[in-house]
Amino acid sequence: MRFVLLLVIALAIAFGLGGWSAEQALDAKAGGGSVTVGVWMADPDAGSPDADPYAKALLARTGNLTLGIGEGISFHAAHDAAGAPLSRSCAYRLSGSTPLARVWSLAAYDARGRLVSPGAGRPGWLVSSTLMRHEDNSFEVAVSPRARAGNWLSVSGEGRFTLVLTLYDTPASSTTGLGRLQLPDIVRETCIEEGRGRG
């Protein structure tokens, strides 16, 4: 009886630690990538048969579809320009430009890969074709829980989030197009919990 009890305890510890370590590895992979441009990261091989096992497991966990090689590429940003994690209680300003692409989209996701709720009647994602731009084709986007004039991506609730910028039909998805990319800066403006404003 004692042997059976010790065996059950050992198996419980093994499965518990194994599951925890796998979850930690997937969370680390979710914030990483083989290409880094400022605060943005991407894995160009995520949609290819050569993707590593962790990338495949992450896609299976979130249930999100990924783009194949040549279809496009998704860049993820979980931190602002100062290195602080993106928080739904803060307001951010994205400014700059994107690489050449037929279309691109910008959306916010939680740690489980689910689209962050924008709130009723609010914009939950932005598409390049509907964006207001400056004369030099650059743009600014406000990401915040409170309404903003101009291009605004709404986020609601609490906790961290990740911005995902997906470029479709773009030279940036090829190995030769990844060398000199420019992506928007992400600057935090205000945070509700810090009492410095109401973003």
Score class of each variant (00 low, 15 high):
residue 86 L to I: 11
residue 52 D to E: 12
residue 178 L to Y: 08
residue 133 R to H: 00
residue 36 T to V: 11
residue 12 A to N: 04
residue 48 S to G: 00
residue 34 S to A: 12
residue 116 V to G: 13
residue 25 A to E: 12
residue 50 D to A: 08
residue 36 T to H: 11
residue 42 A to I: 04
residue 155 V to A: 10
residue 26 L to D: 09
residue 197 G to K: 01
residue 48 S to I: 02
residue 36 T to P: 05
residue 100 L to N: 00
residue 99 P to M: 08
residue 50 D to H: 00
residue 104 W to S: 10
residue 50 D to C: 04
residue 87 S to H: 06
residue 26 L to H: 06
residue 53 P to W: 05
residue 30 A to E: 07
residue 112 R to V: 09
residue 42 A to L: 06
residue 33 G to T: 06
residue 161 F to G: 04
residue 150 G to H: 04
residue 141 V to T: 00
residue 150 G to I: 02
residue 125 W to S: 15
residue 146 R to L: 14
residue 103 V to M: 08
residue 11 L to E: 05
residue 36 T to W: 01
residue 196 R to N: 10
residue 165 L to H: 00
residue 198 R to N: 02
residue 184 P to S: 15
residue 71 E to R: 04
residue 142 A to K: 00
residue 23 E to C: 09
residue 182 Q to L: 12
residue 148 R to A: 15
residue 137 N to T: 02
residue 159 G to I: 05
residue 139 F to A: 03
residue 1 M to K: 06
residue 66 T to D: 06
residue 103 V to Q: 01
residue 101 A to C: 06
residue 12 A to D: 05
residue 39 V to C: 10
residue 47 G to L: 01
residue 29 K to Y: 10
residue 153 L to Q: 14
residue 84 A to H: 11
residue 20 W to F: 10
residue 16 G to L: 13
residue 77 A to I: 15
residue 169 D to R: 03
residue 108 A to F: 15
residue 153 L to A: 12
residue 38 G to D: 03
residue 124 G to I: 03
residue 179 G to A: 14
residue 192 I to G: 03
residue 55 A to L: 11
residue 26 L to C: 05
residue 184 P to R: 15
residue 117 S to N: 14
residue 61 R to V: 13
residue 109 Y to A: 07
residue 172 A to D: 06
residue 16 G to S: 02
residue 180 R to D: 15
residue 158 E to H: 07
residue 130 T to F: 03
residue 136 D to T: 01
residue 18 G to N: 13
residue 193 E to P: 03
residue 131 L to R: 01
residue 70 G to M: 12
residue 32 G to D: 10
residue 156 S to V: 06
residue 142 A to E: 09
residue 68 G to C: 02
residue 150 G to E: 12
residue 58 L to C: 15
residue 138 S to V: 02
residue 8 V to H: 06
residue 35 V to Q: 05
residue 178 L to A: 12
residue 183 L to G: 13
residue 177 G to Q: 09
residue 58 L to V: 11
residue 20 W to N: 13
residue 5 L to S: 08
residue 195 G to T: 00
residue 2 R to D: 13
residue 109 Y to N: 05
residue 123 P to Y: 06
residue 147 A to I: 03
residue 45 D to A: 04
residue 199 G to V: 08
residue 172 A to E: 03
residue 8 V to L: 01
residue 4 V to D: 08
residue 143 V to C: 08
residue 84 A to L: 14
residue 108 A to W: 13
residue 111 A to M: 08
residue 61 R to S: 14
residue 64 N to F: 11
residue 21 S to R: 14
residue 157 G to Q: 01
residue 14 A to I: 07
residue 63 G to Y: 12
residue 172 A to S: 07
residue 29 K to L: 14
residue 95 S to H: 08
residue 187 V to Q: 13
residue 57 A to V: 14
residue 102 R to I: 01
residue 114 R to Q: 10
residue 73 I to N: 15
residue 100 L to P: 09
residue 117 S to R: 06
residue 149 A to V: 09
residue 170 T to K: 08
residue 116 V to K: 05
residue 95 S to F: 04
residue 85 P to K: 15
residue 86 L to Q: 13
residue 172 A to W: 04
residue 58 L to Y: 11
residue 105 S to N: 14
residue 115 L to E: 11
residue 101 A to G: 01
residue 90 C to G: 03
residue 67 L to E: 02
residue 32 G to K: 05
residue 95 S to V: 06
residue 18 G to D: 12
residue 182 Q to N: 13
residue 29 K to H: 13
residue 156 S to C: 11
residue 109 Y to C: 03
residue 93 R to K: 07
residue 119 G to C: 02
